[in-house]
Simulated scan of single mutants.
Amino acid sequence: MTADADDQPAPRKKTGRRPGSADTRRTVLEAARAEFAARGYQKASMRAIARAAGVDAALLHHYFGSKDRLFLAALEFPVDPQLVVERILTGDPDAVGERVAGFVLALWEEPTVRDRLLALLRTAAASEEVAALMRGFMVTELVSRVADGLGVPQPELRVELVMSQILGLAMARYVIRVEPLASAPAEELLPLLARAVQTHLTAG
């Protein structure tokens, strides 16, 4: 004789870490934003973010691979610094200025990318917390990596000068809209920016 269905024990609810899902991914990103904001990029850890999100650390690596990828996703950062590092360090050193300038102008001339970059710039300018977060990320993932591969005196300073050149161009061209810079075609700006970048990175 079999027991009635009503007599069967109710299924036990699973406990423990969350399984992977779209909701879990959103929870992880929210936890990452909070952890990065509280501790800064350099001190934040994947383990602490996983703990705050209620997931296994292995799940973060499954979704994002590494801390820098998680940071890019959490802040919706539209540029992968690794691509910039590769553009600078791969190829003929005498053509680095042209490579970097072409890459930068192509990014900024893309409206969706430009809008996101400008939003981040404005936020960083208005918030020291965001500025510090961005600074830690860029120093770790861009400045230090490029500087290690340049083989020139004062490499960190040179990379930061290039960054200042690019940020200054962005502010003047796309935010303040200084003329004739704001209306100049990108192909007209390319050789001028390329020479400045080349000088910063390779001049003796």
Results as ranks from 00 to 15, higher is better:
residue 61 H to P: 01
residue 55 V to R: 01
residue 57 A to D: 02
residue 12 R to G: 11
residue 29 L to E: 00
residue 12 R to Y: 10
residue 42 Q to P: 07
residue 71 F to S: 03
residue 16 G to C: 10
residue 23 D to V: 13
residue 17 R to E: 14
residue 36 F to H: 02
residue 56 D to S: 12
residue 80 D to Y: 11
residue 32 A to G: 07
residue 78 P to R: 07
residue 52 A to E: 12
residue 33 R to W: 01
residue 22 A to I: 14
residue 48 A to G: 11
residue 40 G to P: 04
residue 25 R to E: 04
residue 37 A to G: 12
residue 58 A to E: 02
residue 21 S to F: 03
residue 65 G to H: 01
residue 46 M to E: 01
residue 72 L to D: 08
residue 59 L to S: 06
residue 71 F to M: 08
residue 80 D to C: 06
residue 73 A to M: 05
residue 61 H to Q: 08
residue 33 R to M: 06
residue 21 S to R: 03
residue 53 A to D: 03
residue 32 A to Y: 04
residue 40 G to S: 06
residue 46 M to S: 07
residue 76 E to L: 06
residue 34 A to R: 10
residue 59 L to T: 09
residue 27 T to I: 15
residue 36 F to N: 03
residue 54 G to L: 05
residue 19 P to L: 13
residue 8 Q to S: 12
residue 58 A to D: 02
residue 56 D to E: 14
residue 45 S to D: 08
residue 63 Y to I: 00
residue 19 P to W: 05
residue 15 T to E: 15
residue 71 F to E: 04
residue 64 F to W: 01
residue 46 M to R: 00
residue 30 E to Y: 05
residue 7 D to T: 13
residue 80 D to K: 12
residue 19 P to N: 15
residue 73 A to Q: 02
residue 11 P to K: 14
residue 72 L to Y: 06
residue 30 E to S: 15
residue 49 I to G: 00
residue 47 R to W: 10
residue 43 K to C: 10
residue 62 H to W: 07
residue 12 R to E: 11
